[in-house]
Amino acid sequence: MKIAVASGKGGTGKTTVSVNLYYFIAKFWNQNVQLVDCDVEEPNDAFFFINRKLERSKSVFQMIPEIDTDKCTFCKKCAEWCEFNSITIVPNLKFAEVNASLCHSCGACIAACDFGAIREKEIPLGVISSFDTGIGKGMTEGRLEVGSAMQTMLIKKLKKEVTEKDCITILDAPPGTSCPVVETVSESDFVILVSEPTPFGLHDLKITVDLLNQLDIPFGVIINKAGLGSDEVYSFLNEKKIELLGVIPFRREYAGLYSSGKILDNISKDTENIYIEIIKKIKSRV
């Protein structure tokens, strides 16, 4: 079973909720649980498991086409087939080149070329690492190569890597509502949206709710940093009949614990109770 944690706005508490859910699901529900950090541009879930042990680490690659200008006739067929406008052909200059940052490695250009002028070469996409955390089945993260813009491709590979049928998988999504988020939440059985009661939090929550309705994935909302901002977000949830899974009050000390990587040390009874209630509600939905 896959449960994704998403938000729209960044900094609402996806990582906090993901790490805690993973911990409390292992403690109170099922030991067969794993955490997957899909925020591949800045994965930080692993920081909260100070005694983690690296189990596996592998580099993954993207295939980028290369055009051999000795064989190329500059007919532009490959450039016409390319959906992503990544190929530049200038016949009068005998110039043919692929822009790696636009290429999505779909292979269409290779199929298009009638002259065998295009070959693929590997370029680094990122690193996928698995850790033994001492909790449940451990965690896995994807870490994007600096300079690469292919988050979605890495998340796809990361999801393939961790697919285990009978395991509860918590996927910590990147912020936003674009392709990397769609890739993370698609095929999930349930999505937890983490929001905060601020105008920005509500604005982005609405966009994310629209997205999940279009993808037809069931979801519920956790309000983090409650006490800040206004009550508008609660009216929105009422009006749209969206289930409120839990409310986590804002506490400055908690932000301090987060910054020092210690949210799983000396967990307060209040926090524990909040997550026990959240898990109950998730269980009734999946």
């Binding site: 992503f84 530049t88 009068n92």
Partner: peptide, 21 residues
């Protein structure tokens, strides 16, 4: 003709300028 494409408008225009000599 590439002013409204999703991505790669800059590279397409650069190629166009080169083709225009």
């Amino acid at each position: 003709e590439n002013k409204n494409i999703n991505g790669g408008a800059g590279t397409k225009s650069a190629a166009k300028v080169a083709e225009l000599g």
